[in-house]
Simulated assay, not measured.
Amino acid sequence: MATAYTTVDGDFVHALEIKRSRFITYLRRVETEEQARALVAELRKKHFDARHHCSAFILGADRTAMRSNDDGEPSGTAGVPMLDALAKRETGSGTTDLSDIAAVVVRYFGGILLGAGGLVRAYSESVSRALDAAPLVRRTRQRILGIDVDHGTAGRLENDLRAGGVQVLGTAYGPGHATLKVALGDEADILAAFTDRLATLSAGSCTARALGTEWVDAP
């Protein structure tokens, strides 16, 4: 199973004109097919006057789901090259691990036929150019810990942990105490070092409890 992958950091839009046709690429982070299809439906309403709304998406850390749709373009000239642009994207050191991402290319026809080869190049380039400019983020599977502290201590402890390089995901304030949620690498030495640091910062008054694992964006 994958322990890390790369995805787009939020939503991103990029426009490209090729032989008077306008190709507008939308990228969005998604985690389900329903979310990917919702993006297509959203853009059909927004760009109701466009001729095509072609799409491709990849889901899961292990990229277990890959889908594409030509939306009226000749078969294999839009969705497949879009999906290839996503699947073959190198995100560092030759790694191709882009996932949890949907791409929709809205095409406004400019009156000049591009031919099958021209369409393949246009849709592939549209997604590739968008990925060139889009902010990407690395996600890793992290051990999640909860630290219960009194309200008056929570802010100081959170600041001290962040200053020491600990990734604090947030603080929840309950009626009796606050709970800091932190993410750590899964290695035993990282946990040991964190436990020692927490004991020092809290004078031994705080301990961390395991909350499981989650996919976390790199800071």
Rank of each mutant, 00 (worst) to 15 (best):
L191M: 12
L83R: 05
R209Q: 12
D189I: 12
H177P: 07
R121C: 01
I18G: 00
A134D: 05
S202N: 10
Y173Q: 05
T153V: 13
I24P: 03
E42G: 00
S128N: 11
L59Q: 07
A122C: 06
R28G: 11
L114W: 12
Y5R: 01
G79R: 02
L39S: 09
V30Y: 11
G115T: 09
D217N: 14
V182Q: 10
V120D: 06
V105K: 07
G152L: 08
G204C: 11
T153W: 07
I24D: 05
D97K: 01
G76C: 04
R141A: 02
S205L: 13
S99E: 04
L157P: 13
F194H: 08
V106H: 06
A193R: 15
D71Y: 06
S21Y: 11
D150N: 14
H151S: 02
V30R: 08
H47G: 00
E214S: 13
S205N: 12
R28F: 04
E125I: 01
L43P: 01
F12R: 08
A218M: 10
G110V: 03
K19Q: 15
G212C: 09
G185R: 12
Y26V: 11
L161K: 07
G185H: 10
R51V: 12
A154D: 10
A183I: 07
G79F: 02
S21A: 06
R129S: 14
C206W: 05
R197M: 12
K45Y: 01
T77Y: 04
L211G: 01
L98E: 00
E187R: 14
I18R: 13
R107L: 03
E34T: 13
C54W: 02
V8Y: 06
R141S: 03
S55F: 03
N69I: 01
G10Q: 09
R162G: 15
V8D: 02
D148Q: 13
V166H: 09
